[in-house]
Amino acid sequence: MEQLVLHRIDPARNMARFYALSVEPTLFGGTALIRNWGRIGTRGQAMMQTFDEGSQAAEALIRLERRKTRRGYAPPPR
């Protein structure tokens, strides 16, 4: 299972968002890309996208990661 968590925090705009992506197996032998997003501190929303191959899900995860980092999301500070 791969998991990626990104944050976008901008105190000037009162913005504190998260975007989490994970690749997980499905019960029927496929692979699912699970997306969770919302304001930090809330449960947020979720969406699941299924794929026949794990490589397709990994490619979709990489595309979403690129899109979000272009919009200002970054890994959370440690």
Rank of each mutant, 00 (worst) to 15 (best):
A32L: 08
M48N: 02
H7R: 14
E53K: 08
P25K: 06
R78A: 14
S22N: 09
T42L: 05
T31H: 08
R78E: 05
L4P: 04
Q56R: 11
D10A: 15
T31I: 08
I9V: 08
V23R: 05
M47R: 09
T42S: 09
R78K: 14
L64W: 09
A20K: 07
Q3F: 08
A12N: 10
A32P: 01
P77W: 00
N36P: 00
R78M: 10
R66K: 14
W37F: 04
G29A: 14
A32W: 03
N36T: 04
T26N: 01
G54S: 07
R17D: 03
E2V: 15
G44Q: 11
T69C: 06
Q3S: 15
R63I: 14
T42G: 01
S55R: 15
M48T: 14
G29S: 14
F28A: 03
R13N: 12
R17L: 07
M1K: 15
R39S: 05
R17K: 07
R39H: 09
E59V: 09
R63Q: 15
G72I: 05
S55P: 09
A60L: 12
R67N: 01
R78T: 10
A16M: 11
P25H: 08
N14W: 06
A46Q: 02
P11A: 15
R67E: 00
A20Q: 03
G41C: 06
L33T: 03
M15G: 00
P11L: 13
I40Y: 07
R17H: 04
